[in-house]
Structures are given as structure tokens and as C-alpha cells.
Design a protein around this nucleic acid. Sequence first.
DNA 1: TTAATACTTCAATAATCATTGAACTGTTAA
DNA 2: TTAACAGTTCAATGATTATTGAAGTATTAA
Lengths: 112, 112
Amino acid sequence: MDKQLATILFESLASGVRLDVFRLLVKHAPDGLVAGEIALALELPATNLSFHLKALTQASLITVTQEGRYQRYRANLVIMQDLINYLTAECCTGLVEQCFDAPIATDCCAKN
Amino acid sequence: MDKQLATILFESLASGVRLDVFRLLVKHAPDGLVAGEIALALELPATNLSFHLKALTQASLITVTQEGRYQRYRANLVIMQDLINYLTAECCTGLVEQCFDAPIATDCCAKN
DNA sequence: TTAATACTTCAATAATCATTGAACTGTTAA
DNA sequence: TTAACAGTTCAATGATTATTGAAGTATTAA
């Protein structure tokens, strides 16, 4: 993860529409949803959704595969994790005890 | 964390300058840095840095306190964590075993 | 109390981004 | 083989954002 990619990823998430789309696909990982299902769930006009899906895809935050006449979109969870690691890298330069209490972790996707 | 706040936070991180500033302050948590130290470290003109510091502060991603004629800036690690939780919420709708291998966590700030 | 320091605000310009309807491409069903 | 469906691209408009130099405010040192 370099700065340029991280900036592109944050730009992609810096829109209410794209953030809704990405989080919806995170919830529906790993199967994803086709474009029409996303449009229905978020009540978006096809034109506008397509614009934002393209941006997310070009940023590699989501992937797309064709299924007949449908386009299936999936969240790229690996790059999401990489981005989080980049943002939080070297936090407190290792002086963990001086840092805040809550651990940085989520209830997502941890093998347990 | 609601969508509006999350969008503001991602917008704030969606600039190379602000991302550099925030990450620098994450590394220097919890003591932070004064504006001049940030300008020196990142080789930024004071004017431009001030513009971006204001944006980060208004977004509540960083805090500022006055120290004589200096302004000390600190990363808001709690809101950073909240944002990560928001982004990754309900990942895979709980079907953890269907999800990807790497756990979502970082080496930052975890009490251990 | 004058001058230097630290930082911010202002104004102007340039660039980028979001949204919509209309038109278009590719796929499947009648 | 025609029509319907799923989705994308295009063009135009409006809105937001980044950057810089000049000027301003507040604090401290001489």
C-alpha cells in the first residue's frame, strides 16, 4: 500500500453513495450482489449507481464478474484490510502502554 | 458513527497531504506535534498545511491545543477506530467461515 | 515597545467531482 | 427476429476542492 493508492481508496469511500455500496457489499461478502440488487437496496437510479460502481471498481475496492446479462459485484476485503493497516501503521511508535485502551480490531472476518 | 460523519472522515483522508499529516500524528500519538514540526517533517508551506489542518480538525480526526504561540495537534485515535468499525460492520453477515483468512486487526494500540 | 516568530485567514484561480436524462451495447425471452 | 431487460456511456450542468501569495492575528523575545 502506497500513498497514491491509499488516497484513491479514501476518495472512493468519501461519497455517501459509494460508502453505502461498499458497506452493502462487505455485508454480502463473499457472494456479492448484482447491480440491480444494489440499485434496489439503496434506491439509486441505474445511471448514478453505474457511475459509482465504476469508480469503486477502478479503485479496486470492488470486483465485477459477468453472469449472463447481470454484473456481479463483490467487496475486495483484502485491500480493505491493507488500507486499515496503512492508516494505523506505526501507531504510537510502539509505545503501546501510552496509547488508548480499545484495541484496533473488528468483528469482521476473523477466523476463530 | 453515521454515514454523514463517516463520509466527512473519508473525505478528510482522501488527500495526500491530509493523509500524510494524519498518519504522522498517529505515529506520534499520544503526544502529537506542533504545526511547525509537521511543516518541517512533510516539507509543506505553512499556508497549505494550515488549510489541511483546519479540515482535519473540523472533521474531528485531529485535535488542537494551544501552547503559547504554538498549536499542538494530536490524532483522534478513538474516532479512527470507530470509522474502521463502521466500514467493516456486519462483514459477511456473520458467516465467518466463508470469509477471507486474514483477521481485521492492526499492530496499533492494542493493550497486550 | 519594537521586531521577530508561529500560524491563520482571505481572495483568486484552476481543477475535480456528482448528478441526471438520453442514447447505446450486450443478453435473454417470446 | 423482435421486444424486453440489465447495465453502461455520453454530454451538460452545478457544486465542491486544492493551492498560492498577501495580509492579518496572537505570542514572545530583544
